[in-house]
Design a protein around this nucleic acid. Structure first.
Lengths: 333, 333
DNA sequence: TCGTGTTTCTGGAGCGCTCCATTTTTATCC
DNA sequence: GGATAAAAATGGAGCGCTCCAGAAACACGA
C-alpha cells in the first residue's frame, strides 16, 4: 500500500488499486466508451473502496473546461427562477453538465459582477436570469444567454424568454372577457415588467379602454405591489380588476385589496404572472400567466449547447408562448 | 507582445505585462502584505488592461483548498434559508471565502449526494441546511456544521440552530397569553418540526391544556399545511388558535381558515415560524417566531472557521434564542 | 563605507487531472 | 497460423496557479 494516510486519494491511487493506468481511470471517470467491462468494474470498485472523489479543480484545469453552466440569479425571494433552474437542469445534467448558481448577493468582495465569479470558475456557458448590465458582458468569452428578459440586445448573446407582451395581453384579455372594463395594472421595474405593461396597454387600447398603471417605489417586491395596488384602489375606486406584473406583487395587491375591504374575486379580480409556487397557495388560488419557465430554461440550455459546439450558430431570440392558468382569483363581473 | 490571441491571459501574461514575476502577481491576487505600492499598482493595471480573470481551478489545485464554503439547501421554495445565507456570507466574504450553494435538486447524475458535489469542488467547509442523512457524512474530511437541525448527533460535526423547542413554547405561550385555550398545532416532517411540536406540547401540558396536533401528508409545504389545518378545524371546531410549524405551512393554514370561513385574527389566531419574507406580506401580517437565521448563519460560519484553524476545537451545539415577532395574525380571545 | 537585518521579489516544484500520440491486446479473415 | 484491422490501454506533456526557499534590494547604525 503506497497510499500515505491522511492524504486524499488521487487518480494514481485508484489506478494502482485497480491495477490499471491513470489514463484508464480517467476514461472511466468521464464515462468514455471503449473501456472493457472488466476493467471498468475494477476501477469502480477501487473508487468505492478508496472513497475517491475526483478533483474538479484538476479536471477543469487540465481539460480547460469545467462542464459547468453558471446561472446568475437576482433574488431568491422571487420564485420564478425555480422552474427555470429545473428546465436547465433537466437538459444539462444528462449530458454531464453541472449547474452552478451565482449567489445574488454575490461575492462582491472578490468580484465586480457575479459573472466575474463564474468566469473565474471557467464555466462553459452562462445563463443570465436577471436584468443584464453592460459590464456583465465585458470579459466573457463563453456562450451567454439571457433568460426571461428581452431588454438588452446583446450582440452575440442569445435571448430566451417567455413572450411577456403576449402574456400581458393574455392576462388583460382574460379580464376583459370576464366583463371587466375598469382594469388596473400594478407594474414594477425591469424589462419584463415593461413588456407586460405594454401588452396590457395594447389590449386595453384596442378595446377602447383606459389603462391605469401604478408602479411601486422599488422593483417588483410584495411591498411594491402592495403600495402600487393601494394607490390604484384609492385613486380609481371604480376598478374591478387588477393585473399584477408578477405573483409576488399580486400577493401585495391581495393585501391591499383586503385592507380596502375588497373581496377577491367577488369585488375585485386579481391576476398575477409567473405561476410561481405562491400562486397555487390555497389562500390565493391566483389566476396567473404561466411563462413556462421550465421551457425557457430548456431553451436556454439548448441555445448554450448549440453555441458551445459552434460559436457561429445563433438562435437570436426565442420566445416561449405563455399560458393562462385560471384559478379562483378572477371572476365574471 | 508575446500573448497569442484567442488565449485567455494567465498569470504569466500579467507578470510580463507588469514587468514582474508571476509570484508577485500571485501575491497581489491574494492581497498579501509586503508588496510595494508601486508594484501592486503596476500589477493591478496589467490585470485591468488584459482583462485577466484568475483561474479558480488552478488556484484550488495548487493551494489544495478552494476558499469556498459549500451549503446544502433543501428547497428553494421554503425561504428560511435566505437569511441563513446572508449571515454566512457576511461572516465569510470579508475573509475571502466564497459561498457555493449545492442545488437542492442536485446533480444526481454525477453525485450520490449533494455533499459529493461539494467535496469534488474541494470546499473548505460544509454547511448542511437540510435534514442530514448518514451518507452525507461518509466521505467528508472537512469541517461540517449542520444548521437549523439538531436531529442528528453527528460525531465531529457542530450544530448551530435556533432553539426550536423554545420557539414552539414561545409561540404557544403567546397564544395562551392572549387567552386562547383551544390551540392546535400544524406540524410537518423533519427534526425541526418535531422539536417545535415538542415545545408546543410541553407548554400546553404545563397549563393543563390538551394538545391537538395534525401532521400533513408530506413534509412542510403549503399544501401540507392546508390539509393539516383543514383536518384540525374540522375535527376540533372549538379551536381558536393555530400554531403552524413554519410560515409556509401557516400560509396553507390561512387558506384553510379562509375556506372554513374563519377570519384571521378575529375568529382564529394564527402563528407561524421562521419570519420568512412571506410572513411580512401584507396579506398575512403573520405573527411568527424569528429563528434569527442570520445569526444561525453567522454562528455556522464561526464554527467552521474555528475548526478550519484547529480540527480539535469543537463547539458542539450552539443554540440561538428565537424571538417572537408579533404582527396582525394573532389577537386576544 | 560596510555590515547586518529587514523587506521585497523571484524561480522551481508540484497539485491532480485531460488529452494525445503511441503501444499493446484482441478479433477477423485468408 | 500469420497478416491485418480494430479495440483497449498506456505514458508523457501540460493546464495555471500556490507555496517555499532563497536571492535581491533596501534601510540604517557603527
Amino acid at each position: 500500500m503506497t497510499q500515505e494516510i491522511g492524504r486524499r486519494p488521487n487518480i494514481y491511487d485508484v489506478a494502482s488499486a485497480a491495477g490499471v493506468s491513470k489514463s484508464l481511470v480517467s476514461l472511466v471517470l468521464r464515462g468514455a466508451p471503449g473501456v472493457s467491462p472488466a476493467r471498468r468494474a475494477a476501477v469502480e470498485e477501487a473508487i468505492e473502496r478508496l472513497n475517491y472523489r475526483p478533483s474538479r479543480a484538476a479536471a477543469t484545469l487540465a481539460g480547460n473546461r469545467s462542464r459547468t453552466i453558471g446561472v446568475v440569479l437576482d433574488d431568491y425571494r422571487n420564485l420564478w427562477f425555480v422552474d427555470l433552474l429545473a428546465g436547465l437542469h433537466d437538459q444539462l445534467a444528462p449530458l454531464g453538465f453541472r449547474v452552478a448558481v451565482a449567489d445574488p448577493s454575490f461575492n462582491a468582495h472578490l468580484d465586480r459582477t457575479p459573472v466575474d465569479g463564474l468566469m473565474s470558475l471557467r464555466v462553459d456557458g452562462i445563463v443570465i436570469a436577471t436584468e443584464p448590465t453592460e459590464e456583465m458582458f465585458a470579459a466573457v468569452d463563453v456562450p451567454v444567454v439571457v433568460a426571461g428578459n428581452r431588454d438588452m440586445a446583446v450582440p452575440g448573446a442569445d435571448v430566451v424568454a417567455n413572450d411577456d407582451m403576449m402574456g400581458g395581453r393574455l392576462a388583460t384579455e382574460h379580464l376583459i372577457g370576464l366583463g371587466h372594463r375598469e382594469i388596473g395594472h400594478v407594474s414594477g421595474g425591469g424589462g419584463a415588467a415593461r413588456l407586460r405593461a405594454q401588452g396590457y396597454d395594447t389590449a386595453m387600447r384596442e378595446r377602447g379602454l383606459r389603462p391605469h398603471i401604478a408602479r411601486g417605489q422599488g422593483l417588483t417586491t410584495e411591498s411594491d405591489g402592495y403600495q402600487a395596488a393601494l394607490k390604484l384602489l384609492d385613486e380609481s375606486p371604480s376598478l374591478t380588476a387588477i393585473f399584477a406584473a408578477n405573483d409576488t406583487m399580486a400577493l401585495g395587491a391581495a393585501g391591499a385589496a383586503r385592507d380596502r375591504g375588497r373581496r377577491i374575486p367577488e369585488e375585485l379580480s386579481l391576476i398575477g404572472y409567473d405561476n410561481s409556487p405562491l400562486a397555487s397557495a390555497n389562500l390565493l388560488r391566483l389566476t396567473t400567466i404561466d411563462g413556462r419557465n421550465a421551457e425557457v430554461g430548456a431553451g436556454a440550455a439548448k441555445a448554450l449547447l448549440n453555441r458551445m459546439e459552434d460559436r457561429a450558430v445563433q438562435i437570436g431570440t426565442m420566445l416561449v408562448e405563455p399560458e393562462l392558468v385560471i384559478r379562483a382569483s378572477t371572476a365574471a363581473l
